[in-house]
Design a protein around this nucleic acid. Structure first.
Lengths: 339, 339
DNA sequence: GGGATCGTCTTGATCGATCCAATGAGACCA
DNA sequence: TGGTCTCATTGGATCGATCAAGACGATCCC
């Protein structure tokens, strides 16, 4: 049916078969309304017969658009439970497809994180970027803005409140508030926090949700918080110390990785996670899902994030570009046995 | 330094600045040896000064190559510990970059898994594919072969031994053999197997390694094997039954998901995983890494897989194409507390 | 009836690179 | 001196699509 390994048919081939000009075929593909219905049908038949599909390179050259979205992918983090990227990438790919875009992955070339962006930008290989790691105060966003490169960030511009690019983010505080309130509703009074070091904006955001929820019920937070690195070992140590010094009956953690550390401590001490002694994680990683009895965890609506990001991208790339819209989405709580 | 939002410089711009012809600039980029060293330097200065980078679309159109590798990405599997893709994708992106390729992701559009391939192929959007799900006896490989589309498979062509395309795979049997032998060396005699249903070629391959290792020491396998679905619940049930009926002291599992099910049963019965009662999983997922005390697991050398795949791709896309080479790589064992 | 308007389709130029064949300058040898 | 050969460089055509403008007939309205 479809020809094997011959040169693919071109516009001209279709035009000849249908007995029309090249431009008419082009219109049949891009502006069908411009054609009389009978010629449209004739051209479509020819397209079908030849199995024609417009050559991407030629189209890209002429229209100055590639319909590709670039996204940098960092090294997989081993030893942690960070499963965000996997789910997000898939959602983004799926949503982009519906909008007529494909996703181009590129690696951060170690020392110079901008090199990849610069290269793709100058060679006009992609139409826009999705930037996922805005939290480190990293230069990508600022640099891309200066170059007037279209991009949407997954993550708020914490350090640049006057940034003008569109962004989409998940309300971490709302997530931990949800988690903490859930524990309060279950009767807990002393709920501890294990989060990241103070220089992490995301970490502080999530911590704020925890303290907000406690204060809303008139409960104190003093002595119940700990800030450590994002490793299982740190979570284990921190929870051990908190148990000894503050006697909490529940833990809210900034990540599933830290929550696994808490479960580790529980195991050390013969405690079973559940209604009495609870733990809640953040990210709803695979780990949370498969660990015995399950780890209750805050789940980011990554599918929705992808939808919003693509929406913003479409706006940026429209002619004329529409005003940048940003969105802050609310996570949900995946309830499991650990709470 | 770099111009803001103006049209990027073209070959002609560089040529004018350097006082040479367009073709000379093209040669400076693609065949520097053809130029006299002083003109080369002059052209390179001009390139540097203008921040020139060849327009991808134009180059693609002329050379009939996109330097893009397409890869289909399936939906993230929730509720399992399958972390293979994440690690592999990153390795592939990184390795491809070194070979001058970028990775284009596309989604499997539900009902028709071939649609995505067909589309990209006909529009000459990608040079080749990496096909990752060859195990289901799925039609991709056969179909791509018929269309003479260049592709490399991650996974053996189980059902088509006469397939002529290059492939790279990990020797599952070698992995489970490694795991089983490790347990034997630790003194275990009765080692159970929990794997997938019989129609899974990969599952049978991994099972073969387990039975091979036991038979090599003259130990029986009868009554020690179970074949179930790849879920935590199935692993939990299967291990419970095996413990009652066959009294094994160790379990080798076809996946970390199943191994988590075993840990679940251990927990149910107050058993602590370790030297006495051991479990080994497969895939070295994040779950295996962060679960308390750690889950010993067979680790696929995905970085090496990516290298081999890219090597094969370069062969396919070379002029003239070199003969397809396939590779079967050996996994390693990540030792942790569960064994 | 003539000019403006609309709907439909066509022609030639163009995007920015590379391919191909050809040119000029110089080296070398007879 | 003239011919051949190599090296370095050039000009024109080309990849396959879209853009911009124009051609043509039919319709409409004063």
């Amino acid at each position: 049916m479809t020809p094997l390994s011959t040169t693919p048919p071109t516009l001209a081939d279709v035009a000849e078969l249908a007995g029309v000009s090249r431009q008419t075929v082009s219109n049949a593909v891009n502006n069908p309304d411009l054609l009389r219905s009978d010629t449209l049908a004739r051209v479509q038949d020819a397209i079908e017969a030849l199995g024609y599909s417009p050559n991407r390179a030629a189209r890209n050259l002429r229209t100055r658009a590639s319909h590709l979205i670039g996204m940098r992918i960092g090294p997989a983090q081993e030893g942690t439970a960070n499963a965000t990227m996997d789910r997000f990438v898939h959602s983004l790919v799926e949503t982009s497809r519906e909008a007529g875009y494909h996703v181009l992955l590129f690696a951060g070339s170690g020392e110079d994180p901008l090199a990849g962006y610069d290269d793709l930008l100058r060679s006009t290989a992609v139409d826009a970027f999705v930037v996922t790691d805005t939290y480190l105060g990293n230069p990508q966003a600022v640099w891309l803005e200066q170059r007037r490169a279209p991009f949407v960030a997954f993550g708020r511009p914490w350090d640049h409140p006057d940034a003008r690019h569109p962004w989409v983010d998940v309300d971490g505080a709302a997530g931990t508030d949800l988690a903490t309130t859930h524990l309060l509703d279950r009767g807990h009074q002393r709920i501890a926090w294990i989060g990241w070091r103070k220089d992490s904006r995301i970490g502080e955001d999530r911590r704020a949700g925890w303290s907000r929820a406690l204060h809303a019920r008139g409960l104190p937070t003093t002595g119940l918080a700990s800030r450590v690195e994002d490793t299982v070992a740190s979570g284990r140590e921190a929870s051990a110390v908190l148990l000894d010094e503050a006697q909490p009956t529940a833990f809210v953690c900034a990540s599933d990785t830290l929550a696994m550390g808490v479960l580790h401590t529980f195991r050390d001490r013969g405690i079973t996670a559940g209604r009495e002694m609870s733990v809640v994680g953040f990210d709803d990683s695979q780990v949370a899902q498969v660990v015995p009895f399950g780890l209750t965890s805050v789940r980011q609506p990554l599918e929705d994030v992808a939808v919003e990001i693509v929406k913003a991208l479409e706006g940026l790339l429209a002619h004329p570009p529409t005003i940048a819209t940003s969105a802050l989405l609310v996570p949900t709580l995946a309830l499991r046995g650990s709470s």
